[in-house]
Design a protein around this nucleic acid. Sequence first.
DNA 1: GCAAATTAATGATTTATTCAAG
DNA 2: CTTGAATAAATCATTAATTTGC
Lengths: 211, 211
Amino acid sequence: MWTLGYDDNGGEFCFSEAAFFHAARKLRPLLPRPLLSLRANGPPNFSSQYHHIGNVLDEERKREYLLNNEKSSSSSSTSSTTPTIPIVVSSSRWNPTVEQLRILEELYRRGTRTPSADQIQHITAQLRRFGKIEGKNVFYWFQNHKARERQKRRRQTAADQTKYSEREKEEYEIEETKTKCRWPGTPTPPSTATLLSKVSLSLSLSLSLLN
Amino acid sequence: MWTLGYDDNGGEFCFSEAAFFHAARKLRPLLPRPLLSLRANGPPNFSSQYHHIGNVLDEERKREYLLNNEKSSSSSSTSSTTPTIPIVVSSSRWNPTVEQLRILEELYRRGTRTPSADQIQHITAQLRRFGKIEGKNVFYWFQNHKARERQKRRRQTAADQTKYSEREKEEYEIEETKTKCRWPGTPTPPSTATLLSKVSLSLSLSLSLLN
DNA sequence: GCAAATTAATGATTTATTCAAG
DNA sequence: CTTGAATAAATCATTAATTTGC
């Protein structure tokens, strides 16, 4: 599991292990950010949103939202001075532009599946020409796309196979045994000659490596 | 992804074991076998024009049919009745059903890697309820699955996705990078000390075996 | 036509695995 | 046997598409 911190400028993306799990969790915005900006890479139909911002909040998130509002009370008060103008909330998640999507899909089509960090940085840098984007967006895009393509394919074959057999939900029980002997026959233990040949091979290999 | 049993041409069937299973190698046919017209276990892409054939017979009858025809050298009846339609050739090799596959993968997931002969017999007995199967199929399945899982991982970690074509580079101006580190971390390559320790270990092992 | 309501897609996180190094 | 690295699978959450009642 990856936790992440990032900055918008470089797309640099520092990960740490589970030790930072809890702290990093809170990086996730609990509400659409109260920033006053239009979408940098707005999709064609971005007009009807800003609806019912707080509808999906559970108690936990409501509490945290209130905590956050305490800090930014000054900004909220300034916004209250212009109540008739709706606060334009920037999207909480990346939304690829058509150009970005086209390039990403082309890259995928040509074989890119899990790009390296450098590749991600480069792709991100290129795609930034077409709109706001970060490295993690590229990373996630490939993760998701790969997974969902696989999922699609898997569902297809599963559907094909279910024609032949009805699913049986019953449990199977196969007990574990401790026997060491292997299938298919009674394995004859390796002869001394075999062992010796292997040993000498290994020895010569080691020696050649040392040279 | 491993494709054991799904490739009718037999291209995916290879054994990495020693001369012990040398005979099994010959199971790989150079050409599709011209015999048998029904499959015991439905393959995913079983041609739809023959669905009616498959639907008539339940698994039990199919199995029986196969057993009866295992020794026959040529297809007899169906070819004459449908001369223009290519004969549905059953693979001579095992093709796992979804249930069999599910159980095998579950066993693998739970830690079974190289089951003992007893385990194999037990597993085979359980899986026979879902279709024709032999002990060697189980044995080979685990061998192949284990090997291909390892192979898959190695491919991913070592020589993964660097398939940018030249055209692509030019078009998107995304240059190839040689770095192997992947998003988001940078794996440290094995040090020289590590390599040397391996060599000396191998050497000492060989020497101890010689005593 | 229009939003509210609903559904489908998909971006972002979390969880469960894998192999293999120590 | 334990653990690190690194996903891939499963899941959550938000956005877009679509439907629906007016």
